[in-house]
């Protein structure tokens, strides 16, 4: 089977095989990505993140059904943690999405993190592209259940939704850095539980403070453009009118608040499209993609060469005996390689 040709024709098994090749870094993976790349860039990518048990999968299921009702095709990438000890994983997000399995307009793929710590897997971005090339209109990326600092999703998604539930801590939690800073849209799930209104109030306060402190620090923020999350700053400052992330109370299991959540997501997408932020985010993403491949390939190339010539072992011995240090060694290696 010619995976690329079949994938572009709409063969679901070909899409599935392409993602496997990407995930396992098979020899043909790079070739597949090269051929798929020109067909990407059309899908809307929605990131869904939040703590374990917040209801991300259940909400994904409901949102996917709502998009299907609009006639849009949906891809879902659901990520669960890989064991750092055995490499095994239980990928259980499909349990909440069984109603979507027989819908031909939906394709769900579960992925293990396989050592990645940012809430995604290293290959999530390429899996998104495979679904994009396949022709999916909307691609949901559901992260692992996150703690406070797994924020890689913002690098992959056009719009990031943070799903929270009541009862997870006091208002200091709401002013901490990390995942609360990355939400374009907030959803308070299990809103029938105690504390939902309190959580909404605390989040509102945090988000209003954001808007205020940004006005105060606009100049210094502009200097922080080299920061890897620079597109977030851009997003908030573009065109002068800042986006104030909306908060929606939801009971996903009963489909309550889902329509309003979709409205919020669409409003955000309209906002970033009209203000040029979407283009800026996608430019930033292209840059990250290229640099990732560059760093990865150079690292692999140099490591392999050092291993082949035996220099790697030699350097390691010298460092261990404290005859030299890693910084000097790497500076020497870089000088030698760049001379060639």
């Amino acid at each position: 089977m010619d995976i690329v040709e079949e994938l572009l024709k709409g063969n679901r098994l070909a899409l599935s095989r392409a993602i496997t090749a990407i995930e396992n870094e098979y020899d043909d993976a790079v070739e597949i990505m090269k051929k798929l790349y020109p067909h990407t860039g059309h899908a809307f990518v929605l990131g869904i993140t939040g703590p374990p048990g917040a209801g991300k999968s259940t909400l994904t299921d409901k949102l996917a059904k709502a998009y299907r009702a609009q006639g849009k095709t949906v891809g879902i990438i659901a990520i669960d943690p890989t064991s750092p000890f055995t490499g095994g994983a239980i990928l259980g997000d499909r349990i909440r999405m069984n109603g979507l399995t027989m819908d031909e307009g939906v394709f769900i793929r579960s992925m293990g993190t396989r050592g990645s710590l940012g809430g995604l897997s290293h290959k999530t971005a390429d899996a998104i592209k495979a679904m994009d090339a396949f022709g999916k209109d909307v691609i949901f990326v559901e992260t692992v259940g996150v703690g406070q600092s797994e924020v890689d999703i913002v690098k992959a998604a056009d719009t990031t939704m943070v799903v929270l539930i009541p009862g997870m801590g006091d208002d200091i939690q709401a002013i901490k850095a990390g995942i609360l800073e990355i939400g374009d849209v907030f959803t308070i799930n299990k809103a029938d539980h105690d504390g939902a209104d309190k959580l909404v109030r605390e989040l509102n306060m945090m988000l209003d403070l954001d808007a205020h402190s940004e006005q105060m620090t606009q100049n210094s923020t502009e200097k922080a453009l080299a920061d890897q999350f620079h597109h977030l700053n851009v997003a908030k400052h573009a065109a002068g009118a800042a986006w104030r992330p909306p908060i929606q109370k939801v009971i996903a299991s009963q489909n309550e608040g889902v329509a309003e959540t979709i409205e919020n997501i669409e409003k955000h997408f309209k906002y970033i499209s009209e203000n040029g932020i979407l283009q800026q985010r996608r430019t930033e993403r292209s840059k990250n993609e290229m640099l990732d491949v560059l760093h990865n390939n150079i690292g692999t190339y140099i490591t392999r060469r050092l291993a082949d010539t035996g220099e790697l072992e030699e350097y390691v011995g010298q460092i261990k005996r404290r005859e030299t240090d890693p910084y000097t060694v790497v500076a020497d290696i870089m000088r030698d390689m760049l001379k060639e």
Binding site: G88, L91, R94, I95, S110
Partner: peptide
């Protein structure tokens, strides 16, 4: 060490 997709 397997990846197990559990469907319920």
């Amino acid at each position: 060490g397997f990846e197990v997709v559990y469907t319920g």
